[in-house]
Design a protein around this nucleic acid. Structure first.
Lengths: 137, 137
DNA sequence: GTGGGTGCAAACCGTTTGCACACCA
DNA sequence: TGGTGTGCAAACGGTTTGCACCCAC
């Protein structure tokens, strides 16, 4: 892979990986994807999963989430949204919020550089863990 | 370290690590700290650095930053603030913004769980990299 | 003397990569 | 047939951990 144009062939493995990510809302890790997809592709290798995740991320087809967990998570929803991470169970929830461009504006008032975007990771206790702590509803 | 109370002794190494972090605004990694602090403690080990960084983080004396870089970064400023990461040079800048509690409020309007806080990572091009791209000022 | 802290080295774990082979245009 | 993709395994880099020793209380 160099600077010149480069043809991109399709592959069943890449299609399956991409399809897995966009049809699961679980923000899976490479290992999650590998273990699930192995049911359909028994010989697929973890290296192939990683190579395709990197490629799909570079193409902008998926997004990578890094928030402190040891492993990277991947998101098939590339529309602007934010994420909530439960401190108790570790689940990741999409947060569809109203437009919050004012966050970038607020930041730019104190910063001379060029702000291209942001990632917000909210954390706390998710609804089902709250329920377990206080079962009386 | 179990659930019962546990006495915490002081150590020169831990003091030095903590002092390094609060006197440097560079958001250093464990390795950064290790390499610098070795000038004063030639025999200190990386394991000790990691153990104390984990301990100080658990005590709430410092904060850990995870945003996608391979390594964790540490911040001696535990007051609420956000961070800007330059896509070009990788530098990390503190963003002291006006009160942005409205971000949590906006999130909570779409979420039934308990939001305890957030981390915002802004990204883009920092002032000095902008200057290098467009040297005419 | 007891238990917390350290240095050292090995292990660990997520990720990347070199290589030979397979496959598609 | 040339170049792209894959499977496999080794390597890599950041982090954790087991262990013997040391030191503060």
């Amino acid at each position: 892979m160099n600077h010149t144009t480069r043809t991109l062939n399709r592959s069943k493995q890449r299609d399956a990986i991409f399809n897995y990510i966009i049809t699961h809302k679980t923000h899976p890790t490479a290992d999650d994807i590998y273990n699930d997809i192995r049911k359909d592709f028994p010989n697929i290798s973890l290296g192939t999963v990683y190579r395709n995740l990197t490629l799909l991320t570079e193409l902008g087809s998926i997004k990578k989430l890094s928030y402190g967990d040891a492993a990277e998570h991947f998101d098939g929803d590339i529309t602007p949204h934010n994420h909530f991470i439960c401190n108790t169970c570790g689940s990741i929830t999409d947060l569809q919020m109203e437009n919050i461009d004012f966050v970038d504006e607020a930041a730019s008032r104190n910063f001379d550089g060029k702000i291209a975007g942001h990632n917000i990771y909210f954390y706390g206790t998710c609804p089902s863990c709250l329920q377990n702590i206080h079962p009386e509803h």
